[in-house]
Design a protein around this nucleic acid. Structure first.
Lengths: 135, 135
DNA sequence: TGTACCTATTGACAAATTGCACATATGGTG
DNA sequence: CACCATATGTGCAATTTGTCAATAGGTACA
């Protein structure tokens, strides 16, 4: 497990649960969830577990913040939903711009996956080479 | 291609070249290169192209900084090499701790890869579902 | 000798991301 | 009313990373 100088910012790890490794990964995750079904922040926090975020890992404030940023960017829109009990909820939908943005994200992630594969293959190849050297 | 609010920090994109998407990815890349062959910063900058870093993408100062940090962490050691022409070079080698750290990194990256696969599969599945809905 | 250029390292600053702590508001239950 | 679950938000500090500038040795060439 990877240990880092504790406390602070992104991609952090303190022992125990795996951190997120991909920069701004929350963004495409939220877009993908919203594309499947319009929803509000509080609800999305739990839904993120589908992408490997351990429950309780993602702070709600981070999700809210990103949703507002995406609205400023034009990738989602929102309306207040005052029906039902409890405080009003801000319900988000993905815009066509958001769809295109998500598609670009997916292209990027595919490329990132290839990069990862290259790295791991490099590691494995080198590992076996040095083992045969030692033997 | 992914457009971000221009100017600034990591994982940035301004049109054209793909940015790095994995947090602190430079770290395992340098370790892997050094494990293959002890080297100095200036040399490593170019060697990074093997991992998909476009030439000129990674600023030398970023590499030097990370090397010093890894030395503080105990994952590499260095000596000055005054032989040869030009200014002295600081040559780095990977320590056993660095080996273990790299192995942990690889485990993490494998997990990240699976996470990526899950995400992309989710996207593809949903995409086909909404297409059949629209049809 | 001067100066221009390549190699090599380092330091300083600014911008972006994110975890954490805290503040606020609604409605239901005892 | 007190208390809790729901729901959204603000502010701050730590960390990461890109950019730019500074320093310094060595070589080539007029």
């Amino acid at each position: 497990m990877i240990q880092r100088r504790r406390r602070g910012r992104g991609g952090e790890f303190d022992g125990g649960v795996l951190p997120r490794r991909i920069a701004r990964f929350l963004e495409p995750c939220l877009l993908l969830l919203l594309r499947g079904d319009a929803s509000h922040g509080y609800n999305l926090v739990d839904a993120l577990s589908q992408f490997g975020f351990a429950p309780g890992t993602v702070d709600a404030s981070v999700v809210y913040r990103m949703l507002r940023e995406m609205e400023v960017g034009g990738w989602v829109t929102s309306q207040w939903d005052t029906a039902g009990s409890g405080p009003p909820r801000r319900v988000y939908q993905v815009t066509p711009e958001g769809e295109a943005y998500l598609a670009a994200w997916v292209d990027d992630l595919r490329y990132t996956r290839e990069e990862l594969d290259r790295f791991i293959a490099f590691y494995v190849r080198q590992g076996t080479a040095s083992e045969s050297k030692q033997t």
